[in-house]
């Protein structure tokens, strides 16, 4: 935590360093305000209800983003449905069923470190080769969502694991004293206790999926029509911004509006996570 008050001594070097540190902080704030105000001011101009409920026209220059929102949420749904069971299972394995430092958990943890460091464009290549070509899914919402499921898995597992590790051992010991099996303990004691932490982890994953572009370029594709099945190509909001900015002359105003919609979605989700984490901490400190 911050707020350590150290003596402010006078020497020239000290003053020089203090000035540069404050300058850096102001610079970072300035860049942040510059980017955010640019997107908000330019994005608000085109934002309306009709923008959210209409289909795009003229390559996105006119109309709205309804099919794109539907595709984005479908990709998100696929990613979560695939990643949650696997992530939760692995997190429970690491936190509750193995000893820290054993060979198997170490191997799993190291692989997850590597997975977390893989650039998203490489996930895109893998998704294209494995889901689109080898499994024959083609450019589709299913292929895009599954690719993103692989991508969020390490973040998901780590935050879900942290949620379990945060539960005091008294719960486990009390459950064991009552003769409950470990499976029963996990299901009826630990899972409810960890729930708020699990939600926070989930929300982090959702944020990553919504922000992702590169991994979707050649897995879910560019098609901006309303998707009719999981095997249809669907354009995510992030790809819509990319396409409008790069490939559509005159697409800039609507790229701003789409960027604003994306940022607002992420902020709402982040806010919900912060709120959830706060409530969790309060509940944890209140009850134990």
């Amino acid at each position: 935590m911050s707020g350590l008050s150290l003596p402010t001594s006078s020497g020239t070097e000290e003053r020089l360093v203090t000035t540069s540190i404050w300058t850096i902080a102001l610079l970072v704030c300035g860049v942040f305000l510059w980017i955010v105000s640019d997107v908000v001011l330019n994005g608000l101009a085109g934002l309306s209800i009709s923008y959210l409920v209409e289909a795009p026209a003229q390559g996105g220059r006119a109309g709205g983003i309804l099919p794109i929102l539907v595709s984005t949420l479908s990709i998100l749904a696929v990613a979560l449905i695939a990643a949650i069971p696997l992530g939760l299972g692995t997190a429970i394995l690491l936190a509750e069923f193995t000893r820290r430092g054993g060979t198997f958990p170490t191997v799993v943890a190291r692989s997850l470190d590597v997975l977390a460091a893989v650039p998203s464009i490489v996930f895109g290549l893998f998704g294209n080769a494995f889901f689109c070509v080898w499994l024959g899914l083609g450019y589709s919402i299913l292929a895009g969502g599954l690719t993103l499921a692989c991508m969020v898995l390490p973040i998901l597992i780590r935050s879900l694991e942290a949620a379990f590790r945060a539960i005091p051992d008294e719960y486990r010991l009390a459950a064991a004293a009552l003769g409950m099996s470990r499976t029963r303990t996990t299901l009826s004691v630990l899972l409810p206790q960890a729930a708020p932490g699990l939600v926070v982890g989930l929300v982090l994953g959702v944020g990553r999926v919504l922000a992702e572009t590169a991994a979707l370029l050649f897995t879910s594709g560019y098609v901006d029509r309303m998707p009719e099945s999981w095997l249809d190509s669907g354009r995510s909001l992030s790809i819509h911004i990319f396409d409008l900015a790069m490939n559509v002359p005159g697409g800039e105003p609507n790229a701003y509006t789409s960027a604003l919609v994306l940022i607002v979605m992420l902020l709402l989700i982040n806010g919900a996570a912060a709120w959830g984490a706060d409530r969790w901490v309060r509940r944890a400190t209140g009850t134990s």
Partner: peptide, 25 residues
Amino acid sequence: ATVYRRLVELLAGIPSVVYGFWGLA
């Protein structure tokens, strides 16, 4: 410090495509 840290976290959450778009525009 609290506000500043929150701001840096927000900066970390902005999607790369938005950074790119800002750079482009």
